[in-house]
Design a protein around this nucleic acid. Structure first.
Lengths: 407, 407
DNA sequence: TGAACGGATGAATCCTACA
DNA sequence: ATGTAGGATTCATCCGTTC
């Protein structure tokens, strides 16, 4: 209790000055948005936006005003139950997640913990808010059942298919090649946010499915400690968080992450001009997360403008390139001769320069030329090292990288 | 209770005459196979093989001998509003799902039903048996949590990615493009069947992952009623069942399907020369399933022979190689690069050069490298005609000579 | 400069026959 | 039941070094 009170007190002084400017009211007004909120359910107390609260996540959530966040993204302990150590065929040791925070005495203990943080998160959610929880077969069934018991309304279960999972070294099971996300509304009657058109437009004009393919978080993206070892055992890829936030929030929305860890949620939220509230028990992680987030540059607002309404039927096609970093939101596209220019947006649509037109690469290409139709993949070009390439080659690169995994 | 007794009595007369011949003993002997079974746990009563039992699935399972089936494949009802079997433990009926209370009541009823059939299935399983359960986000979390509570040991959760899912018409969610299977052993110490090598060999020599891609059951495969409408609402594709059976059973094994429906499990079991026990409440479905299964031709036995598996090959001691003259005492062994040397001794041990260490090929190999363990068969090499071969090929020669290598 | 190669590593409930 | 020893087992990707 002490730490909660202290955290709350320490916060209030800074609340009016978030670390970086909140979103310009482009699409949705930032104040009191998103549907009616029952009187009394929401405190007027300001939120500790874009901060990391240190301490017990349940207590910290309890100290937040009720009904105040638009989205919860939670990556709770998985309660792995590992036996001895596991070695690869070459006798090297697998660096398993054996941290103390992942150890629970029993299913009952894990359930009690899960129930408590789920309740606290549900309290913090706006009535129309939604929540993502990620887990593996070790814990996700318990989490899902408890969510249903507590009144959450499951909208989808989503499969993160790992492009490069760790193999099964002993050949005794199927390669554990995915994790599961549960996406749920606070209740069955929530009027939740789902950016259907933008997602579809960024996915070759096909609805986004419940199975997502992303590589693990490795290489440059993976945070390292001073000795070059991974800083956090379970850092999630930014591409995964980007799809989560782009699908279920608007610019300016508030995202709560009760298991903040290395701060992926905060970094992506800042880049996409959402606000975040992180809760983390270990100061070491929080410190690294702060530095990480400070280095993030929010995308240009034009890259995040809410997509056109369904009636305007955007025809877009390349959000995967954006999510995966093959094109940067804000990057400029031109036609082969440089007569037309457009800017890439984070959701995979593009906006034509000197005009209000926003839409898919195909539609905006047609608009620019005054033509009825246009293949955006060959019409639009990016400049790399002084040379213009059609964006189709970026798509080819992505396909090459995905290899067989993309099927 | 009446139906149970009747079902059991009606069965016994036919039990000794399965519909089609049981498997020839290709890979595994059909009688009393697959590990020790605690005395008293298994009844000697014959099983109703390759039949469809009509009636309540829990009662019918309870009438089966305990510890008698190798695999359970279960496709339980997903929908909480299915009515019928959804009753409270006191047999009162559950009202419509309107508000939270009823929702809770409904979940409780579903849980009670699930727990009951899971317990009955677990009782029917051999100690080393495994179970697959398929479901969607509506029910799979409850099923999975209950399985863990009842002592099942989850081996994998598997995602059936639908190649051609039904689109989401209202555009309010991600396309629900997958279903989840849970694969679990009866208990954590089960010595379960997993045909790792065969699966890998059939998958471009890469181990099979936890995400499987199959089309829905449509077209010719989909059973139709006399009016041309689909006979059963949730008929599963045979390809899915084939992978389930091929991964976790041997020819001749007994597969129990407590929600038999249109009989996909039976049809695939027959084709793959496994035996099945189906339980189905509705005679209409059972009738169609019987006709369907009768038309199935079992695959030729040669098509079902398991590929050789190093794990299952008979053990050959290194001393046997020495005794049989495949290696001469005093011969020199080296590692692949010739950095370490050892001398073969007459008793099948080896001694490391320039050291007092004597022991098995494995122990001395580990010692030489300073490793904890070592597979001496692949580590140590002999020189023949100027070329180095791992001593494993000498073992293969001995096995060939013994006539075992064919299997 | 680039290709080729070797080493490292990722939320992992990862063996089994025999004494 | 428990301990000991035999011996079977990995995919995609990134990074640094070598050729």
């Amino acid at each position: 209790m002490r730490s909660v009170a202290k955290g709350a007190a320490g916060r209030t002084a800074r609340l009016c000055r978030p670390e970086y400017p909140a979103i310009a009211p482009l699409a949705a007004p930032p104040a009191a948005p998103r549907g009616a909120v029952p009187a009394g359910a929401v405190s007027d107390r300001a939120l500790p936006l874009n901060e990391i609260l240190i301490g017990d996540t349940i207590a910290q959530m309890a100290a937040l005003p009720a009904g105040s966040v638009d989205l919860v993204f939670a990556d709770p302990p998985y309660n792995l139950q590992l036996g001895g150590e596991l070695k690869r065929p070459d006798e090297s040791r697998v660096d398993a997640v054996d941290d103390h925070w992942d150890q629970f005495e029993s299913f009952a203990a894990y359930d009690a913990f899960t129930r408590a943080w789920l309740l606290a998160a549900r309290r913090a959610l706006k009535p129309n808010g939604t929540m993502f929880v990620i887990g593996s077969y070790h814990n996700i069934f318990r989490v899902g059942a408890l969510m249903q018991d507590l009144g959450f309304w499951i909208l989808n279960d989503i499969v993160w298919r790992k492009a490069n999972p760790m193999p099964n070294f002993r050949g005794r099971r199927f390669t554990n090649a995915h994790e599961t996300l549960i996406w749920a509304a606070r209740s069955a009657d929530s009027k939740y946010t789902f950016n259907y058109e933008a997602l579809k437009a960024g996915n070759e004009d096909v609805q986004v499915r419940s199975d997502w393919l992303f590589p693990l978080c490795t290489g440059q993206e993976r945070l390292k400690d001073e000795k070059g070892r991974k800083l956090h055992p379970t850092q999630k890829p930014e591409a995964l968080l980007a799809r989560v936030l782009l699908s279920s929030t608007k610019p300016g929305d508030v995202v709560l992450d009760p298991f903040f860890g290395s701060g992926t949620t905060g970094a992506v939220a800042k880049r996409l001009r959402r606000s975040f509230i992180g809760i983390e028990r270990e100061e070491t992680y929080a410190e690294a997360a702060r530095a990480r987030i400070a280095a993030v540059e929010p995308l240009p607002e034009e890259a995040l403008v809410a997509p056109p309404s369904a009636r305007e039927a955007p025809r877009v096609a390349f959000s995967a390139l954006v999510e995966r970093g093959f094109v940067t939101p804000g990057a400029e596209l031109t036609d082969a001769k440089g007569r037309f220019r457009a800017v890439v947006r984070a959701d995979g649509t593009i906006s034509l320069a000197d005009s209000p037109n926003v839409g898919s690469i195909h539609r905006v290409g047609a608009l620019a030329q005054g033509a009825e139709a246009c293949n955006g993949w060959t019409f639009w070009h990016v400049e790399e090292e002084g040379r213009r390439h059609p964006i189709d080659i970026l798509r080819a690169r992505l396909r090459a990288e995905m290899g067989i995994a993309a099927e």
